[in-house]
Each structure stands twice: as C-alpha cells, then as structure tokens.
C-alpha cells in the first residue's frame, strides 16, 4: 500500500507561515519557527512562495549516512524518524540530506526531522489555503516533474556546447 505523503502546491501558498508555527508548536509546545521542520521560502521578486519539508525518500541518504542507525522507518506512515535515544548528535545526516530537511538542535544536541506527526501532519491541518495536503500519492508522483527538470538540464547542456 502506498503511504500518504505531504504534497505541496506552491501556487496556493501565500507565505503566511501558519505551517511553520504549527510544526514548531508540535516540536516545542511554543511558537518557534526556528525549530520548525517545514520551512517556507519567500521568493518575493518572483512572486512565488513555497513551503518545503522532508520527502520521506525511499532511498533515504540520512539513514545511509547515520553511523549509529538512529534513523528508522515508521511502518505505519512510511516516515523516516530520528530515534532520540540512539542519536549521538554527529549531524552527518544534515550534510547527507540533499534537500536540507534534516536539522540539528543545539539545545538537545540531537538531529530532528519531519516525522509526519504520526500520520496527522500539523502543517497540513494549519494551512489555510490547502497548499499543503496529506494524501495518497503514487510512489513515482514526482517523476513528471523530475523528467521536466532533467530535459531542461539536457537542453541547457546541449545548447551550451
């Protein structure tokens, strides 16, 4: 069975940060965007706003990089989760993640990341415009986008040679 995923619809995002607020509240019990594992980027000059968070990669480099096996898979949600007791705070995972969605908490000296809130993500619930939706998605839902980026890359390479 395919797991549900956090699907981001950037065209609907208004940059209001309700997702960061909700996420940080789950993490800390206070409103603290610096501890949010979903981040909104505001591209003001391009009139574009986009939240991004962990894709829960099938082939998760954070897991591969962790020297103490402190990142495990939650079988119910498919989320990759940090086992706090095991994590030694080396931060290798934050370097390994190609998307910048692994974080390090200097207070606890542990890594932290999106764990899909045990299957009820606070960010999706808080989003006032449905720019973040938690829904079933085919495992290859990003393929068309990846193909587009790849063909653009090939074009650029061939035209510059």
């Amino acid at each position: 069975m395919a797991h549900r995923m956090l699907r981001i619809v950037p065209e609907k995002c208004t940059g209001c940060m309700q997702c960061e607020l909700a996420c940080s509240f789950v993490q800390t019990g206070a409103f603290q965007p610096s501890r949010s594992v979903i981040r909104v980027h505001l591209f003001d000059e391009q009139a574009s706003y986009a939240p991004y968070t962990c894709f829960q990669c099938r082939e998760a480099w954070c897991m591969t990089a962790c020297p103490v096996n402190a990142i495990a898979v939650n079988l119910a949600t498919g989320a990759k989760v940090v086992l706090e007791q095991t994590c030694v705070g080396c931060a290798l995972c934050t370097i390994a993640c190609p998307f910048g969605t692994m974080f390090y908490n200097p207070d606890t000296k542990k890594a932290f990341k999106c764990n899909l809130c045990e299957g009820d993500p606070a960010c999706a619930r808080a989003c006032p415009t449905a720019a973040i939706v938690y829904e079933a998605a085919a495992p290859d839902w990003m393929t068309p986008w990846a193909d587009k980026v790849h063909s653009r890359y090939l074009e650029a390479v061939s035209s510059s040679s």
Binding site: E11, T14, G15, C16, M17, Q18, L21, A47, S48, Y49, P128
Partner: peptide, 10 residues
C-alpha cells in the same frame, strides 16, 4: 501576479 500574507495571516 498573486496575493500574499503577512506573518500568520489567513
């Protein structure tokens, strides 16, 4: 082009 929110504004 689009609409935009201030912090925490719905």
């Amino acid at each position: 082009l689009t609409n935009k929110a201030c912090f925490a504004c719905t």
